[in-house]
Design a protein around this nucleic acid. Sequence first.
DNA 1: TAAAGTGGTAACCCTGAAGTAACCTATGTC
DNA 2: GACATAGGTTACTTCAGGGTTACCACTTTA
Lengths: 119, 119
Amino acid sequence: MSRKYIDNPNACTLVHTMNIIGNKWKPIIIYLLSNGPMRFGKLNALVPTISKKVLTTQLKELENDELIIRKSYAEIPPRVEYSLSEKAKGLLPVLKELSQWAENNFPEIEFEECRIVDL
Amino acid sequence: MSRKYIDNPNACTLVHTMNIIGNKWKPIIIYLLSNGPMRFGKLNALVPTISKKVLTTQLKELENDELIIRKSYAEIPPRVEYSLSEKAKGLLPVLKELSQWAENNFPEIEFEECRIVDL
DNA sequence: TAAAGTGGTAACCCTGAAGTAACCTATGTC
DNA sequence: GACATAGGTTACTTCAGGGTTACCACTTTA
């Protein structure tokens, strides 16, 4: 008789984490929101390469996973603010370590294209 | 004049990290290899739901990113051993923190299906 | 009266990641 | 001579994530 499946829950919680934040846009969104609450339009302006539709779905998924909080004001024109939940804030130091790891281990990459233009 | 692009390299190193390990199988592979070198067949047996083709491409990509080391012996039948590089070992504590974060913040999830069967 | 501002939704398409099944190499063994 | 073994490759198909464009609601401003 031989084992056939993964033994360790660590691997699976990891998989779960990746399902939540391991995609193209979510780390960026979480990072941006770490500076404080932000409106939909501002997020969209800061990441012009994301379409409104995709931004909407990413925010909705993050909200479902309770990583961000959506607060909408009954105004015209509408105003909606997104902010990080406590769950997400607990993630920030780990994300920072991941960044650090990448910087330390891939020094050949300049990450220039990430630098700013103007706001 | 207003800023139009993301300001912070943190977000982008993060994106880079996610590109490397943020997918369905790589965290699992890295975790399994953290127990020591392992052969292709054993990896495949431990994760029976991954196809040989996909396992091959994942291992190849991890090797290109210098996270794992592929050692092949000129024997018949062939023998190939995979192990973690130093780069990848530096990542392990962070991955563990990510696991920990998921366990702490999603207590409602049992992660039962991750438990073992037999080896 | 028409355009701008805000936060979306609806319908559609496209691509790349992942999955399936068959095949290959070279040897040893029945 | 047929099969098993280990580590793949090749060709084909499927599917979900992401992308594009158009449109909406409601008010203020020009």
